[in-house]
Design a protein around this nucleic acid. Structure first.
Length: 279
DNA sequence: ATGTTTGTTCCGAT
DNA sequence: CATCGGAACAAACA
């Protein structure tokens, strides 16, 4: 589902195509929950010109001329589609924005099959607070040192897979990229985080940066459920470049890949390449 | 029909 | 009190 590379692809494509457009209509379908409430939400968006689009962790922030931001978190099944035809409404549409610039008109459709996503109007101050809730961004310009990463990782007493998914430790990794990063770094997902040495956490940070960068280069991962598509409805390519996720045989040593639920998340690992070292 | 899917939050347990 | 594990959330698909 959308992790950093998918959200990054959506946000950067949106940035290229909606800056300078004015929001002329806001529709909330079937009382879909928005924050702080529907009336405030609509009022904050209507007639505003879009000045910029950012990504913060797995959030998309659409900046308005008022200085406020439209925050979208896609959670597991959120999608964003940008279309010029206005009559075809995608399935599971919850919010739509009509845009116009001179004679050019477009519509952004926000869909969310399972409705776990978040759509909110937030102030510039709240953006600062939002960023504070998250750990450092691993890419593209990483502001985290190996020492800092080591400290953050080993501060936790749970297994390393859980820690990588903890957005307050490091932001952007979800189940797929965390699984692949662990494989690249040759770390067993059930290794206790506080047992990792600096050499291993260095490898892990490098691996995380690598899988996320590759994910972005490949415009994200589209699985068979097609829940991730870009804003034009096109699939990503990174699913063709997974290291271990979804595989049955280790690409390095051909050992049979193990699949195990770790904290209720499907985790693939090579029992040979990723040996458990918990003493 | 029921189990599986997962990002985040919340709650009970440790 | 802080931290951790796991349930809950909603909806579609196999």
């Amino acid at each position: 589902m959308p992790e950093l590379p998918e959200v990054h692809t959506i946000a950067s494509d949106l940035k290229k195509h909606i800056i300078g457009f004015r929001i002329t209509e806001v529709d909330i379908v079937n009382n879909y929950r928005v924050e702080p409430d529907a009336k405030t939400f609509k009022k904050a968006l209507l007639q505003q010109t879009i000045t910029d689009v950012h990504r913060v962790a797995k959030n998309i922030l659409i900046q308005l001329e008022s200085g406020d931001y439209f925050r979208v978190h896609l959670a597991m099944t959120g999608q964003v589609f940008l279309r010029s035809e206005k009559d075809i409404v995608p399935r599971w549409t919850r919010v739509l924005l009509r845009l116009s610039r001179n004679t050019d008109t477009k519509t952004i459709f926000f869909t969310d099959m399972r409705m776990f996503g978040k759509h909110a109007i937030i102030s510039a101050e709240e953006v600062i607070l939002l960023k504070k809730r998250y750990g450092p961004e691993p890419i593209p310009q990483s502001d985290i040192t190996y020492e800092e990463f080591h400290k953050r990782i080993t501060s936790k007493r749970t297994n390393i897979k859980n820690v990588l998914l903890d957005q307050s430790i490091i932001s952007g990794l979800g189940n797929i990229y965390a699984t692949d990063a662990l494989f690249l770094a040759k770390v067993h997902p059930e290794t206790l985080a506080n047992k990792l040495n600096p050499d291993t956490t260095k490898k892990l940070l490098d691996a995380a940066k690598q899988v996320l960068s590759e994910g972005i280069e490949n415009r994200g991962s589209t699985l068979s459920d097609k829940m991730y598509l870009d804003i034009f409805g096109k699939e990503g390519f990174h699913q063709n470049h997974f290291k271990i996720y979804g595989k049955t045989e280790c690409p390095v040593c051909k050992t049979k890949v193990e699949y195990k639920k770790i904290s209720a998340r499907g985790t693939y690992f090579c029992p040979n390449c990723q040996q458990l070292k918990n003493d």
